[in-house]
Design a protein around this nucleic acid. Structure first.
Lengths: 167, 167
DNA sequence: CACTAATCAACAACGGTTGCAAACAAGCAA
DNA sequence: TTGCTTGTTTGCAACCGTTGTTGATTAGTG
């Protein structure tokens, strides 16, 4: 995605208003590399704008996605995650804590023989590497031990395997 | 997955009861190559056992998945799909109708340089090829033609992925 | 300043999935 | 065959993430 400043320009150009809520969301996304969920963005923005509503976050996230500034990715972690890195890349997904990392490596074009046979037109190839992140691997059983320090911009809010509510 | 007969043995050996519901589900899965959703399985089984509950289908599907007889895959099509093909393979996913097809091609072990950097331990590599199936590619634009209710999972006559086979 | 978009709030609703308690039936033994 | 035990099924409500609604209020923007 573009910088908050550039996005501001873009929004203006589109006749959209630049609200503090939107700007805060821009900033959160721009500084994030952890594919936050809408809730995660919400939690962070709320530190700055306590009154912001989750609706607004979803709304803005969807707008940005529609504009192609971010990508909504569903990696089976329970909720959609938003990725400001819109280039072609892949993902590492921790099966324990749900954290996601980008994989920028250029992978060899994979031939898809079956595609032709079925008249399938392939437009995108996503590779999802599932496994365990360092923390969860270290914690062995992946239980409560792994206290992430890697979450630069997001909080490990949703642990698909150990949902504890606390909302 | 194993045949309905073998599964029956397995279930018995585990002290689990063989109910008509379960057997029907075994049969549906065994004859399917379309990665049906729970609802799809439900709809088919219902033709035979009208009184079966969706709950039972989910229950059995989860049991089978826990036993490793089938795999639950989340390809971002809105609901989980169940795949009796448990070998290592990948998927072609139609972004329009949500249909899924296996890709048995053996892909070279993809190196994941970033994984090391993050201390990530990769356990599985899934590749998802997204695009359009023949029907949707053909009728795709504006036509609204490929109506495709991906819940059917049967309907061999209509399934472009099902050249032949299926029960 | 006025116009209008954007936000908020407080829901309800939705689809997919699961928890729960009660009714039920498979399997086994007598 | 009958009876019993225990796993199963069922129906329904609840849950979660997300979207919709409506109306009132706020506040960007020209």
């Amino acid at each position: 995605m573009r910088s908050p400043e550039e996005l501001t320009q873009v929004f203006r150009a589109l006749g959209l208003k630049i609200t503090p809520q939107r700007q805060a969301i821009f900033r959160v996304l721009h500084g994030s590399t952890v594919h936050p969920t809408a809730e995660a963005v919400f939690d962070i923005v709320r530190e700055e704008i306590p009154a912001i509503s989750l609706r607004t976050v979803y709304q803005t996230l969807n707008d940005l996605a529609a504009m192609g500034e971010i990508h909504a990715v569903d990696l089976g972690t329970g909720s959609a995650r938003f990725d400001p890195h819109t280039g072609h890349h892949h993902h590492l997904v921790c099966e324990v804590c749900g954290r996601v990392h980008d994989v920028d490596v250029e992978l060899p074009g994979v031939p898809v023989p079956d595609a032709d046979a079925f008249g399938f037109t392939v437009t995108t190839t996503e590779i999802v590497f599932r496994g365990r992140c360092r923390d969860c691997a270290a914690a062995g059983d992946g239980a409560g031990g792994a206290d992430v320090d890697d979450r630069s911009a997001t909080r490990p809010e949703h642990d698909p395997f150990q949902e504890a509510s606390s909302a």
